[in-house]
Write a protein that binds this DNA or RNA. Sequence first.
DNA 1: AAATTATATTGACATAAGTTAAGACATTTC
DNA 2: GAAATGTCTTAACTTATGTCAATATAATTT
Lengths: 190, 190
Amino acid sequence: MFEFLFENLSKTIFLSESDKKIISQNFKQKKLLKRQFFLQEGNISFHTGFVTKGCLKTYTIDNNGNELIYQISIEGWWVTDLFSFLTGLPAMYNIEAIENCEMLIMDLANREEIFKNVPQFERYMRLMLENNYIANQRRLNSMLGGTAEERYLTFTNKYPEISNRVPLKTIASYLGIAPESLSRIRRNIK
Amino acid sequence: MFEFLFENLSKTIFLSESDKKIISQNFKQKKLLKRQFFLQEGNISFHTGFVTKGCLKTYTIDNNGNELIYQISIEGWWVTDLFSFLTGLPAMYNIEAIENCEMLIMDLANREEIFKNVPQFERYMRLMLENNYIANQRRLNSMLGGTAEERYLTFTNKYPEISNRVPLKTIASYLGIAPESLSRIRRNIK
DNA sequence: AAATTATATTGACATAAGTTAAGACATTTC
DNA sequence: GAAATGTCTTAACTTATGTCAATATAATTT
């Protein structure tokens, strides 16, 4: 479980054995069953989680009661309502397991402790945030410009593992498309 | 000119006279005529600018040659391709004056210098980034859920000053709507 | 394994928004 | 201040995508 986290971190930063020890002391395991919530809108996001197994969706509910999917997270992804986690203010997102999940989670104090003892970890987090920031910019761009089909193709191309694993309606919402339309788009592509 | 920057910073952080001195030593003035570029796609964004006068648009060009507006910035806003500024990699955005502009600009070294001597400034920048991050999340959300008219109403409500100042077609692109459609939406609202 | 519930597909139809094209205003530019 | 650009509005028409409803398929639950 920690091995998977270390592998992931090691793609970006170097970790000594003592670094790994500090990190493992500051994360704890968390399991979620399918349909359980990691976070609910209005609560404070006390934890940031690293997914080691399973899949979660991050979403809001709009006025018509529809889920608007902000993010779909599988193994190797980080999940939290970042704004709530950093500010301590109520979260706008729900985060719910769509498969049974295993995660490693840390709170703000853990994060500080790791930053203090493993300075590279701060760099890792900064890079993650930057990548996340531009991913959002790109996604906005595709919403402004592209057609539903273009957006879907970009998505499957970028996240093939997610595309074949997650309910169609979840992907549809992520792309801002009606599920029926996505079903037709898939048919036309084949 | 600096007064306006200080006023803006003072909404969030406290600045002593010596803080102000350090800040003013690390920004320089920059003027842009309408239609001049502050940044062009593919170049490195060496500067972050604070707009003291005028208005700029940040955009990409899609495959059909259309502008996709990422941001519209008036007095009191910061402009840069943040990713490029932080990483030194080529920018994806164009930033162009749509009115004659006056700005205060800093480069990465200036930023470091201010961070070192005016630690509150780092806090200011962090808060700005966080706000920016959730603004993007909200905008994505409105693209996933809302109709063109809803998005327009949210926009005018949030940025009334921009709505009456910037060409309709620019706002239309920001909202992901054809200019003709936005024109009709405006008529229907009255 | 039957029953229940969730998800996906399909067809018929509705509609919001895009496209094209023309003319009306505004703003620059010379 | 005339000419040239750029921007906005309007109307007629097209199209992509949404909506509704029925059925099919798959996945859970008992």
